[in-house]
């Protein structure tokens, strides 16, 4: 199973990947991208099973990436990992087809709680 981590902060990508391993998802292939455009290029090469994506990024932000995927018929499982998670943003994310939204700073428990149901469904 391939998990793609999308965030414009290299340090944050590293922390997300570390948390994935700590949460017990380390056996999956974990790849990274710095924005939505890079993410699209990445999954063109090999489809992802889950995308964990920041909201605010240069070039192409997270919600535009999700909309682009759904417009092109790509139903990849998608979750946001972002510093802002007000009810309005959550609604926008869910309406666009996201499975969950995790706010930074996050915990291992938050990752397990959000990802486990998605990856086992």
């Amino acid at each position: 199973m391939k998990i793609l981590v999308v965030d414009d902060s290299k340090a944050m990508r590293m922390i997300v990947m570390r948390t994935l391993r700590q949460a017990g998802f380390g056996e999956h292939t974990i790849e990274e991208a710095g924005n939505g455009i890079e993410a699209l290029k990445n999954i063109e090469q090999k489809p992802a099973d889950l995308i964990l994506c920041d909201w605010n990024m240069p070039e192409m932000n997270g919600i535009d990436l999700l909309k682009k995927l759904r417009e092109t018929g790509n139903g990849v499982k998608f979750g946001f990992v972002t510093s802002e998670g007000n009810p309005e943003m959550r609604q926008i994310a869910m309406d666009a087809g996201a499975a969950f939204l995790i706010t930074k700073p996050f915990t291992v428990d938050a990752f397990q709680g959000a990802l486990q149901p998605v990856l086992t469904s």
Binding site: S9, N86, T103
Partner: peptide, 16 residues
């Protein structure tokens, strides 16, 4: 500094 900026970015919730 780039890493520290990320810390401050996440700290935005303090002011909510």
């Amino acid at each position: 500094f780039e890493n520290f900026s990320e810390v401050l970015n996440i700290a935005r919730g303090w002011f909510d």
